[in-house]
Design a protein around this nucleic acid. Structure first.
Lengths: 114, 114
DNA sequence: CCGGCTACTTGGTTATGCCAAGTACTTGAG
DNA sequence: CTCAAGTACTTGGCATAACCAAGTAGCCGG
């Protein structure tokens, strides 16, 4: 059993939450922005993960994007939250808090061992 | 995009942590025990999820079990943490705290919207 | 000895996240 | 003009987790 493997597993599902949060914070963001923000938080994500995730959120109506020119390369897709994306993010954040509470509740006696 | 689906996704990977935590708390526990404890914390898990998870942890050397007679049916597999399971759980708990911190860090400005 | 309860097991499905290529647009050097 | 290098986005295939649903099997009471 590999701890690194399980650590990676832990964050699955939290990605949608953090990606949506970053986009809300920035008002609008393009993928490389988002990847850099994630790296700052030590939540490393690669392109092959992020692009499909953004597409799913777009198809789901939670995100929208506009093309914008870049001064240093091809144009970029700048993503923004739609109104339903905004609502969804609030719900998702609340679900996250519930999960954290539930896990904390289950693991709280760990403190006797640490 | 379905909020229920994504909510379910959120807890993936957290299951190993809570299952190991429950077993440590109880000293030893059999699957139905664990499922009931999870229900109390609103972390619903079905047999088809839990049994394979326990098997993986057993194969990984983190858990061990003993058969014990029951007064109301067939014997039960009582699972216990092995020493390496104990170490693993400490590491996993620490990874969990890091993830929570990272997500909280990313989502903290959400409070301005709530 | 058989119906119902309790425990445990096991295919098959879906979806996420990752890796690794691949496509395409832009700029600048020569 | 053209070609290399950089930036941005896309896609196919793989591994795995969690779930669903069905199935196997031991145990007790009538």
């Amino acid at each position: 059993m590999n701890i690194e493997n399980t650590k990676a597993q832990l964050r699955k599902g939290a990605l949608e939450l953090v990606v949506l949060s970053i986009i809300r914070q920035e008002e609008e963001a393009y993928p490389t922005d988002i990847i850099n923000r994630l790296k700052e938080s030590e939540l490393i994500v690669v392109e092959g993960t992020l692009y499909p995730l953004l597409s799913r959120l777009k198809v789901g109506g939670l995100l929208d994007y506009v093309w914008r020119e870049s001064t240093s390369g091809p144009p970029r897709k700048y993503y923004r939250l739609t109104p339903s994306g905004d609502t969804f993010l609030n719900e998702l954040h609340s679900s996250w808090r519930s999960l954290v509470d539930a896990v904390d509740n289950t693991t709280k006696t760990l403190s006797y061992h640490e």
